[in-house]
């Protein structure tokens, strides 16, 4: 176990290093000189040189990369070119908003997805199954930002029930969470159905039924428990995607989360903020995946020795 975890940790470090390198290289090819962009071409050569020095842009590229790496390790990405806010402060502030949104939609997706998937599996071949599976494939295939707009039209404009933008109270969470969660609910429902059907075929389920165990107990205790691993695998990978997927939803509902920060810094070419955001999101994504992987090793010992060792 310890060996597996340390191996995964080492891999994660390597991946993070690679991400920092890619981010840095990408930043070098951004069209336009950031200093000139920042000073809006009003400054003379001397000022430009001074600012360049202040930002540490006057040293060689490998040196710049080392400085960037050193800063990133200390969570110091500098200040935003435009708002002058310290990047890490902005990141943490916005990230808390996104975490709230993502965890609400996560809850929504898991509860709805598992419930629908189970209902479909139990009623396999009946109309409930086909209706639920059709809805789930539509849910998976509709862009989340479009669902968000449809929800705005129905619940905000036509029924006038819920606010359509902003992020001031719990009521404001409802539509964004549904919009973000629908897609994941769809894929969770599909995998739950497949996995349940696989398990229901097994001999131990037949044994449990033959013993006279009540059907509800068979499903909840014997089937669902054993069907859980593929579901958890999917849920784990989707958790990371949800954090980045919230970018689109934040845009629709103008929620000041990390996604909006990323989009804004990209359109403003605010390099320190952009660097920070990309590294931060990638970091969280990688760490979430690492934690999910480690938790499998606890749930399913086979992973430790089989897939994990490879």
């Amino acid at each position: 176990m310890f060996q597996y975890i340390s191996k995964r940790l080492f891999q994660t470090l390597l991946v993070l290093f690679g991400i920092s390198l890619i981010t840095f290289i990408l930043l070098q090819v951004v069209p336009g000189d950031p200093v000139e962009l920042m000073l809006e071409k009003r400054a003379d050569a001397q000022t430009i040189a001074r600012v360049r020095h202040e930002l540490g842009l006057d040293v060689s590229l490998p040196q710049q990369y080392l400085n960037f790496l050193k800063g990133a390790i200390h969570l110091d990405f500098g200040k935003s070119y435009f708002t002058k806010e310290v990047v890490i402060t902005a990141l943490v502030r916005c990230f808390m908003v996104t975490v709230k949104l993502a965890s609400m939609s996560f809850l929504f997706a898991v509860v709805l997805g598992v419930a629908c998937g189970m209902a479909a599996a139990i009623n396999r071949g009946k109309w409930i199954d086909s209706v639920l599976m059709t809805i789930s494939i539509v849910g998976v295939s509709a862009p989340s930002f479009w669902i968000a707009i449809i929800l705005q039209i129905i619940f905000g404009l036509k029924l006038d029930l819920l606010p359509i933008s902003g992020f001031e109270g719990p009521v404001f969470f409802i539509l964004p969470s549904i919009a973000l969660g629908t897609r994941y609910a769809g894929s969770i429902a599909r995998i739950t159905r497949t996995s349940m059907l696989d398990v229901i075929k097994q001999d131990y389920i037949r044994t449990a039924r033959a013993k006279g165990v009540k059907e509800g107990l068979v499903i909840m205790k014997h089937a669902l428990k054993n069907a859980m691993i593929p579901i958890i695998t999917l849920v784990g990978t989707e958790l990371g995607n949800m954090l980045t997927g919230s970018m689109l939803i934040e845009r629709v509902f103008s929620i000041p989360g990390i996604g909006k920060l990323a989009v804004d810094s990209m359109s403003n070419r605010d390099l320190p903020l952009l660097e920070g955001t990309v590294m931060y999101i990638a970091f969280v994504f990688v760490i979430v995946n690492l934690l999910v992987d480690i938790s499998y090793a606890f749930i399913d010992p086979r992973i430790r020795y089989g897939k994990g060792a490879n």
Binding site: I22, N241, T244, V278, A282
Partner: peptide, 8 residues
């Protein structure tokens, strides 16, 4: 490449 969040 796989570790980078897709959309980002």
């Amino acid at each position: 490449f796989a570790a980078f969040p897709d959309l980002l």
